[in-house]
Amino acid sequence: MTVVLKHSIASALVLAMCGIFFIESLSYPVTAARLPQILIVILALLAVLMLVESVVRQRKQNKLDEKTEDSGLVSKVQSTKEINEIEKKEPIKIKRVLIFGTMIALYIFLLETLGYFILTPLFTFGALMYLKATNIMMAIILAVGFTVVIYFLFSMLLNVPIPLGIFF
């Protein structure tokens, strides 16, 4: 994804939020609506500015690239900083992030029904195995171990509520 595209999407999202919030705020009493409306306007302006800024940066970047190609020089030093700001050094493993993210979301959305004791070891084990973090034995030990330790620390020692679910 190009830098400009990324920023366009972000700006669009922020602007959409501004729109929804602004319409919502129209029904509030004047005093309650004042500050939010000021902030919404500022936010919308900043979103536009951010897009403009990314376009300007991209152009600069392109020019720089052209120059490097034209002169054939490896004047990378100059542009390193800018590149670093735009691209991370290591490639992102998008698929891995998405799957791990889905696991987190599933964990959270099912926690209230299935409960802590069923889901926590399952999530920990699944995540460790998927990420190839440890071997299978270690994953089992960690999964069960953490479930028990956290339960004892939070629920028994500190008496803090834990989402136990419907079975407990």
Binding site: F100, Y107, I108, L131, F146, F154, I162
Partner: peptide, 15 residues
């Protein structure tokens, strides 16, 4: 290791 830490961070955050 990072990959062991990640799920544990999530667990602690949720609880």
């Amino acid at each position: 290791p990072s990959k062991v830490l990640a799920p544990i961070i999530i667990l602690l955050c949720v609880i």
